[in-house]
Computed example of a mutant assay.
Amino acid sequence: MIRSLQRITPQLLTLAALVALVTLFFPNFISISYDGARFVGPIVDVLKRSAPVALLAVGMTLVIATRGIDLSVGTVMAIAGAVAAYAITSGFGLPATLALALLAGLAAGLWNGCLVALIGIQPIVATLILMTAGRGIAQLITEGRILTFSNNDFAFIGSGTVYGMPFPTILWLATAILVAALMRRTALGLLIEATGINRAASALAGVNATVILIAVYMASGFCAALAGIVATADIRGADANNAGLWLELDAILAVVIGGNSLLGGRFSIAGAMIGALIIQTINTGIVLAGFPSEYNLVIKAGLVLVILVMQSPNLSADWFYLKTLISERRTARAERKEAS
């Protein structure tokens, strides 16, 4: 437990520094109030708006741990949202609607996993195929229009509250905790890390790397479907053109900012979740600070670059070397004074 906390300490400090920076521009950023039905405030909004990226980051973390990448998660969001909206407007009940949307995500993950694990296509190319074709599939389902609905039970998933907290916040926190517990309380996490470190060696050690790869891509598709359901329920409609657009990049950034390596191996779900919060805090902070919209992406990219540079292992090693050198010189100086 202590070791895990030490590993995500840089991310926690980064998030705290970012919150402090936003608070300088918008003093009410950390204020939270209760209006009798729900908690309100910018921080609460950050926790709610983090849901899609956080859910995507859960699945993306597992994929990246196997030295893979999933560029199709934004498109899978659009597909799952389109399936959900089509099902609910066609008279399906809420359980059937959710099941169909989640099955669509699992099917997309199975497709990606088979291309990577069985056929041997590079992950970035395999998932790019679905990224390209999937949005067209979503548009076919919605017939090229925004498919709206008025089902309050479904809308609750995107905008409802439980004991004053937004349901999307509870959903992504619960998902992250369940996945992290499954990874660390069973051997599954170790098997994923072994596959990412060296697939051939893990296979020789008895690890069924093919099944592991297919499973992580299906998990990524499942998490993307959850994110698509939340996004669709929030706006009460499926927008195949814009749902999840470029969110795969935010998900990858969240995983990397969370301290996970793109080279695979050891991973941290908690770190990725903090990364998602950092991404959303940047997005919200830029808006609250009143910067013109045309500068938003540039400012966001600059802040992300600064964060990644500060967390760079090379920079940490250079800082450690500098501190060691200063300490050695102070010790040598003290010894010379004593000798004289």
Rank of each mutant, 00 (worst) to 15 (best):
T132N: 14
L98P: 03
T89M: 13
L247K: 10
L128W: 10
L128P: 07
I326E: 06
A20L: 14
R184I: 11
A270V: 15
R266G: 08
P52S: 07
A243T: 15
F167C: 08
T195E: 08
A203I: 01
A219C: 13
V46G: 03
T14R: 06
T127G: 05
T127C: 07
L140W: 13
A108S: 15
W172V: 03
T175F: 11
T127L: 07
A117P: 00
I214P: 00
N151R: 02
M310S: 12
N283M: 08
G160P: 02
D318L: 15
V63N: 07
Q122W: 06
L305G: 08
L128E: 07
G81V: 05
I269C: 07
V44I: 15
F156T: 11
D45G: 11
F320T: 15
A289Q: 10
T186D: 07
D153Q: 11
A107P: 05
P313W: 13
P123S: 07
S150A: 15
L305T: 13
P292N: 03
T148L: 06
A37L: 14
V125M: 11
L21H: 06
P42G: 13
Q139T: 02
P42F: 06
D45M: 12
A238V: 03
S293D: 13
M310G: 11
L13E: 07
I307W: 05
I299P: 04
S31P: 01
S33I: 11
V58D: 04
I282M: 07
V63S: 06
A231W: 01
I146E: 14
A233S: 14
G189W: 00
N314S: 15
A96E: 14
I119A: 10
A82E: 07
P166I: 11
S90W: 03
S268T: 11
A317E: 13
A201I: 09
A233N: 04
A238S: 10
